[in-house]
């Protein structure tokens, strides 16, 4: 228990010190992608549905909050929350259709929807700027405080991301989350127990998309800019990779995966443009060697250590001396 508490304190310290350790822009990217990846994990890890179109919801959140900030002068973080709601609303009809299938079909349907969103954003030039994107998004806090200083923006954003991550954790560690896992493990049995499986899946997907949209909203205000790349399927692929690298179904795995991918990209891209090769190689290695991802494997190791320690420990005297008296 104490070790766990120390771990959280260390993590908190690391998050607060991050802008001193790496470039502020990169630190912010790590925060947003960590939230995005954690949100995806609700669907991918806990519900067992591989969405290959999450970029659409991340992007929808980003475009919505960027446009609200630019044209409606809506301050931060209200615009990010509004972006999240837009992404959530968008996900309802799309995922309503998608959750009727599972496995590769679900992945393909979500990919197809995401590509449709991509082309709509590309063609709706008057609103989204097409290829040029939405530029010059103001970064103003509620109350009119100017947040052009990146470090300040980082510290304003940390609690928001923390709340987002906590919501993700709460969703999956609730009776609702239990049902999701039951559906993942055996959908037929869950259905036969009387759970409306599709409705559970849909709610899980909508929550995941809403939180992804929230991450998108933070992203656009951090970059003061959003362009088509954000809704491209490569973004969907990247975030799936982050979750798998860090470890599905772990509280911090997706965040660790996000940090790892972004740091690797940052370090390698100063050396070579082919940083993707290195990230890809690491990805393959992780999938082959640690199938549970980095955090998942660590947890497993620690648990088996714990078990081993418990078994080899001398039995307590009251247990060891049973009936002889």
């Amino acid at each position: 228990m104490i070790a766990r508490r120390l771990g959280w304190v260390a993590l908190g310290g690391l998050v607060l010190l991050l802008p001193r350790l790496v470039y502020e822009g990169l630190a912010l990217d790590i925060l947003t992608w960590a939230l995005f990846a954690t949100a995806l994990d609700i669907l991918l890890g806990y519900t067992g549905l591989l969405s290959f179109g999450h970029a659409a919801f991340f992007g929808a959140g980003a475009y919505a909050s960027g446009l609200l900030a630019l044209r409606g002068s809506v301050p931060y973080p209200v615009n990010a929350v509004a972006g999240a709601l837009v992404a959530g609303a968008l996900s309802v009809p799309l995922l309503y259709l998608a959750v009727r299938r599972r496995g590769i079909y679900f992945a393909m349907i979500t990919l197809a929807f995401a590509q449709m969103i991509y082309y709509i954003i590309n063609e709706w030039r008057g609103l989204t700027g097409g290829e040029n994107g939405v530029q010059g998004v103001p970064r103003v806090l509620v109350g009119g405080l100017d947040l052009s200083n990146l470090t300040m923006f980082y510290y304003v954003t940390v609690p928001l991301v923390a709340v987002g991550m906590w919501v993700c954790w709460r969703i999956v560690h609730s009776p609702f989350g239990r049902v999701l896992m039951a559906i993942r493990e055996n959908e037929v049995r869950a259905r036969s127990l009387g759970y409306p499986v599709d409705r559970y899946k849909l709610l899980s997907a909508v929550l995941s998309c809403t939180l992804s949209g929230f991450a998108g909203g933070i992203y656009v205000i951090a970059h003061r800019f959003v362009a088509l790349e954000t809704v491209h399927w490569i973004t969907s692929g990247t975030v799936v990779m982050m979750v798998l690298l860090g470890g599905m179904e772990t509280t911090l795995g997706p965040a660790v995966g996000a940090a790892l991918v972004l740091l690797l990209r940052d370090i390698l891209s100063t050396w070579t443009d082919a940083w993707g090769v290195a990230t890809g190689a690491i990805f393959v290695a992780v999938i082959l060697v640690f199938r549970r991802g980095i955090v998942g494997t660590l947890q497993q190791l620690m648990q088996s250590r714990l078990h081993a320690a418990l078994e080899s420990a001398p039995r307590r005297p009251d247990e060891a001396t049973p009936v002889s008296r």
Binding site: Y23, H223, R224, F225, A227, E229, T230
Partner: peptide
Amino acid sequence: KPDLANVKARE
């Protein structure tokens, strides 16, 4: 890519 240009320029 405009978003990459934006990130790189700020960097």
